[in-house]
Write a protein that binds this DNA or RNA. Structure first.
Lengths: 135, 135
DNA sequence: CTGTGTGCAAACTCTTTGCATAAGT
DNA sequence: ACTTATGCAAAGAGTTTGCACACAG
């Protein structure tokens, strides 16, 4: 639950000017707990809320947030990019039919036996996606 | 290592006519052990080999093969679709810089504590991608 | 022959980019 | 004022589709 003041602070720390659009998107993303969003969803929400933002700016802002470590980008179904406000290592259910993404609690899944990274490489992240289909 | 004869047989079983293009792509995909490919890679290989196939046909064929259960589609980096000739449950290293995909042996990684699928849903697959960055 | 497959080009979706204008400090 | 951000529209990548022609059975 991040307040308006905290969004401003968050932007300042990330070295991003607290413009109207960034404040807006920051509040949509971080204002009520963790969430998953696509650029389109956010743009739609912003417009619904009567605010003026272009889709291009939504994309730009998402990438700036990502670069600042505030978001993680998830490649789930190829078609579109999902952004996750929870940047810690956790996993996801993906409802294939609806394209919906739901967190799996952090401590639920345990992965053993991950091979070492090849020489000169480091593991940057391990993504686990549990795909769900209607029974 | 699938021979030409086996590709023809494979297509027949899948209910797909063994056309020149399908034979070609089938051999590129299944001719020398398991592999990962994008539509573009295959098209390029086919053209390099002096064969005539359109990119649209490559896409169509990949989806037909997928529908027949011969391939699995992997959503790894959002930008492009990878197809994997190994349809069994195994996992992948992904070299983020190069966009390269490498298998992790099937018995290496063990996943515990996967929550049950929500009501009315079944787990269709669990994807594990170990992302690698240069050190 | 009859029906399915193919090629081409055009359409489509999602995303990125270039550049003039607007807004932040 | 000076710099950075935004909006728009156009471009770009990857993928899909419609339809006439070609090929397999």
């Amino acid at each position: 639950m991040m307040s308006t003041k905290n969004v401003a602070e968050m932007l300042r720390i990330a070295g991003l000017r607290p413009t109207r659009q960034r404040m807006l998107l920051g509040e949509l993303l971080f204002g009520q707990g963790h969430r998953h969003a696509t650029a389109e969803m956010l743009h739609h929400e912003a417009v619904d809320a009567g605010e003026r933002v272009s889709l291009a700016t939504v994309y730009n802002t998402l990438h700036q947030f990502k670069r600042a470590g505030l978001l993680r980008e998830l490649a789930i179904d190829g078609a579109k990019a999902y952004f996750d406000t929870n940047t810690s290592n956790h996993n996801h259910f993906f409802y294939e039919r609806e394209g919906k993404l739901v967190d799996i609690p952090e401590d639920s899944i345990r992965i053993d036996g991950v091979p070492e990274a090849p020489a000169g490489m480091v593991i940057s992240h391990i993504d686990v996606v549990v795909r769900l289909a209607p029974k």
